[in-house]
Nucleic acid binder design. Structure first.
Lengths: 132, 132
DNA sequence: AGATTGTATTCGGATATGCGAATACAACAA
DNA sequence: TTGTTGTATTCGCATATCCGAATACAATCT
C-alpha cells in the first residue's frame, strides 16, 4: 500500500498501453526475439516496431543483446510484465456494491480522520480559485 | 500464459495510464470516496475529475453508489487495481542479460518450431508490400 | 421561487501520440 | 565496391488526448 509516484508510474503504464507494444511484450514473455522475428509474428512494419521498441527500451521494459547484425530483445522486468499479462488474461469480473454497503465502508473510514479540516481546505480552495 | 486480446487490454491500460486517474484509483483503493472528497485530496478540479471518473466508469474500473445528492465511487475491480498498484510500488529493478545467455535461450525455443516456414512468410510479406 | 450544492457533459484549442515514408548506417556478401 | 540485410531515426501529417471554461441539471436549502 505504499504511496506511488503517479507521474513516473504513468510513464510505465503508457508504455504498456498500446496494442503493438503489448503484443511485443507478450511475445517476449515467451522468449527473446529479434526485430525480424517480431515482424513475422505481428502485423506491423519494421520501422514501426523499432519505434515501439525504442519506447520500451527507454522505459526499461525491454533490453537487447547484440548478436552479430541482429539485436535480440528480451524482457528487462519479467516479473512486472508477467504479472500484468497474467492479470489481464484473468479478466476480473466487475463487482457491484449497494449504497448501504458503501455508506458503511465510508463512514468507518471517515471516523479515523478530522472531518472539519476537510471543509476548511475545501473552502480555501474555492476562494483561491475565485481570486486567481 | 493465455493469449490476450491486446486491443481490449489496451483500453484498460490506457485508463490506468494517467497521473490523475492513477491517483484516483489509489485513493479509492483505501476506501470509497465521492467527487468532492477527491477534489480535496487531489490537485484537480471537479469537472476534470468527473471527466476522468467517466472514463474509469466506462472501462469498468470504478462504479458508484448514489447517496442522496452525492455519488460514492469505489473500485469495481479491486484485485486488478490492487495488484497493479502493488506491483508499481515494488518497482522491479531491470535485469541485464549477456549475449551468450540470450543466444542460448533463443536457440532452445527455435528448435521447437519449423525455421523454414518463417523465411517464406517473411519473403511473401516483402513482395506483398512491394506490390501494394 | 431563487440560491446553493454535487456532479456531469459539451466545446474548443493546445499538446501528445501514432504511423508511414524516407533516410541513415553498420555489417556482411558478391 | 556495390549490394543486401537488420535495425534505428527523422519528418510530417492525421488523429487522439487533455483540460479549462461554460453549461446543464437535479436535489436541497432559504
Amino acid at each position: 500500500m505504499t504511496e506511488i509516484d503517479t507521474k513516473s508510474a504513468t510513464v510505465l503504464l503508457r508504455a504498456f498501453a498500446h496494442p503493438t507494444r503489448l503484443a511485443i511484450l507478450q511475445e517476449l514473455s515467451k522468449g527473446p526475439k529479434c526485430v525480424t522475428d517480431l515482424e513475422d509474428l505481428l502485423p506491423a512494419r519494421q520501422a514501426n516496431l523499432s519505434q515501439h521498441l525504442a519506447l520500451l527500451r527507454h522505459t526499461q521494459l525491454v533490453d537487447f543483446a547484440q548478436d552479430a547484425q541482429t539485436r535480440c530483445y528480451y524482457l528487462a522486468r519479467p516479473k512486472l510484465t508477467g504479472l500484468l499479462l497474467e492479470e489481464l488474461a484473468r479478466n476480473e469480473v466487475p463487482v457491484s456494491k449497494s449504497t448501504e454497503q458503501i455508506k458503511a465502508e465510508k463512514a468507518k473510514l471517515e471516523t479515523k480522520q478530522a472531518a472539519m479540516t476537510k471543509k476548511q481546505v475545501q473552502a480555501s480552495k474555492r476562494t483561491a480559485r475565485a481570486r486567481g
